[in-house]
Amino acid sequence: MMGRLRLLIMLALLLLLVACALDKSGYVPPEQHPVDAELPPKPPICIDCHEARDENINWAQFNHTIYFGENHRQQAYRQNRVCSMCHTPSFCSDCHATRIELKSSDKNPTQTYRRMPHRGDYLSRHRIDGRVDPSSCFRCHGNPKTAQNCTRCHG
């Protein structure tokens, strides 16, 4: 049963590729943000250099404001291609990955200018945050592998 299902999915994916090969793409953002734009290494406010929006892209929603580090899901879910113009997936992996032993602020302790989750002693604070809103934790710790470090106290 599962085997047949998998085959079906593979076929569907192949179909997808063929369909795409026919290719009616319309606007596609470039693979890389132009190097000659000389972006400084700080969170960009896109509309400093771009208009708020045109028929192809809505730049304003990607502004890296103070809270963008903890609230980018609405953008990342839909327009991952825009993120990949400037970020390789490894940038995301520091906070989002199936199995990383070090939390991002332990891996990059000197990057104090970033807003990384769980800074400082989080073992104490997490008892409160985790009760108040466990849904946010489940996004990143919601499978057996990402919850591996939790089992020494939970379960």
């Binding site: 593979m10 997808l16 290719d23 793409s25 592998k145």
Partner: peptide, 27 residues
Amino acid sequence: GLWGAGKLSPRVSLSGYAGQPVGLSST
């Protein structure tokens, strides 16, 4: 596994993936 994405028309985009979940490999 495999992931693919593209546009069927300038307005319609499609993506799909299939494989084995890494997060469940430890059970």
